[in-house]
Design a protein around this nucleic acid. Structure first.
Length: 363
DNA sequence: ATGTAC
């Protein structure tokens, strides 16, 4: 078996099998499985695999560049608490959530960023309308307060339909039509491989710009109700779905955060327990990575069946959030314990701050 | 993960 390190302790066989099947591929060199790992398609969520000369769209996934932004602010926590319901309502007016996007294009100077006609077509269609939209599922906006009562704004979102369309396009190309299940990739020096890498990198920038735009809108809305601003120069941005070249290998991270020594990151838990702001240790055994969250304890359907609305309501006491049947599969009880996950990755990241939610926005 | 069509 090739060199690998597993940081998860409660893995099911299906997830472990999926990881080993990926690692067995000829082009796989080394692997790591983060403490929040669970079953995905082709590669588990929370897996990191280094390959030699091959890049696989299915190992990056559909939401290319999905990730986190966080910024601390000069807002006063008590004022935010008092205005929380107003801010909550204002954000839902300013940021499209779920499947929706903006009515008009969001300005973005992206002419200089390389891309192929695949991306150009999507931009000409409605790509720029998607900038500043949140999406659905586990994507969220969190306004919270840390151990020093400092207010943070944290965003989890990705490359929306643009990234999804790019990913689908290249997965079909790689798999000859059957995109999802196999370990189909491109030689990185092939023409198609170069095209995928170019569009992948564009999508990483697009996802980052999407989070910036959401952050800008959230802070603008907060300023209608409170005094303060973001400390923009200290903005953190980390994506957890990408592939990047390092020392001649292609490192695929699918639901895993890049965590080089000194690199800051954000590890979200759930809508009640909030998020950790961390700094990487650059652990080579973990392929310079950490978890991307707490990980799900229950699948979405299972969560909808098992968790009662009463329990969900009670567990969210004191936090302004959308608490109804549409967000039940995002209830705190659907996720693993965040502190257990953090304990398993103490050799991967150092904790800088703990942010507890005041307001949570979901699609 | 994504809206609306291989």
């Amino acid at each position: 078996m090739k060199s690998h390190k597993i940081y998860a302790t409660d893995l099911d066989n299906a997830t472990l099998d999926q990881f080993y099947r990926a690692l067995e591929q000829d082009f796989s060199v080394r692997g790591a499985l983060m403490p929040d790992a669970h079953l995905g398609y082709s590669l588990p969520i929370g897996a990191v695999i280094a390959t030699s000369g091959v890049i696989l769209p299915s190992w990056v996934g559909y939401d290319i560049g999905c990730g986190m932004c966080a910024v601390s602010t000069s807002f006063d926590g008590d004022q935010v608490r008092r205005q929380a319901k107003h801010i909550f309502t204002a954000i839902y007016r300013a940021v499209p959530v779920g499947f929706s996007h903006n009515r008009s294009d969001t300005p973005w100077d992206c002419q200089h960023i390389p891309r192929t006609p695949v991306v150009d077509r999507l931009l000409a269609k409605n790509g720029l309308k998607q900038l500043g939209s949140l999406g659905s599922g586990n994507h969220f906006i969190e306004i919270g307060s840390d151990e020093s009562q400092r207010v943070w704004v944290i965003i989890h979102s990705g490359s929306r339909n643009l990234g999804h369309s790019v990913a689908s396009h290249y997965m079909k190309l790689a798999g000859g039509g059957k995109a999802r299940e196999g370990h189909f990739g491109f030689a990185v020096s092939s023409e198609t491989g170069c095209r995928y890498i170019k569009d992948l990198n564009f999508c990483l920038q697009f996802a980052r710009q999407n989070r910036f735009e959401i952050l800008r809108r959230v802070v603008t809305e907060m300023q209608q109700h409170c005094d303060g601003d973001a400390r923009w120069s200290e903005l953190i941005n980390r994506n957890h779905n990408h592939a990047e070249e390092k020392d001649g290998l292609w490192i695929h991270r699918k639901g895993a955060t890049h965590a080089e020594a000194g690199m800051r990151g954000v590890i979200p838990g759930n809508m009640r327990d909030g998020s950790y702001i961390v700094v990487g240790k650059g652990n080579p055994q973990a392929l310079w990575s950490s978890s991307h969250g707490a990980g799900r304890a229950l699948g979405r359907k299972q969560a909808q069946r098992q968790i009662s609305m009463t329990h969900f309501n009670d567990s969210m006491d004191g936090i302004v959030a959308r608490i109804d049947r549409t967000t039940l599969d995002e209830a705190p009880a659907a996720y693993k314990n965040l502190d257990t996950v953090m304990a398993r990755q103490k050799d991967l990241v150092t904790i800088l701050h703990r942010v507890h939610p005041l307001i949570n926005i979901k699609g």
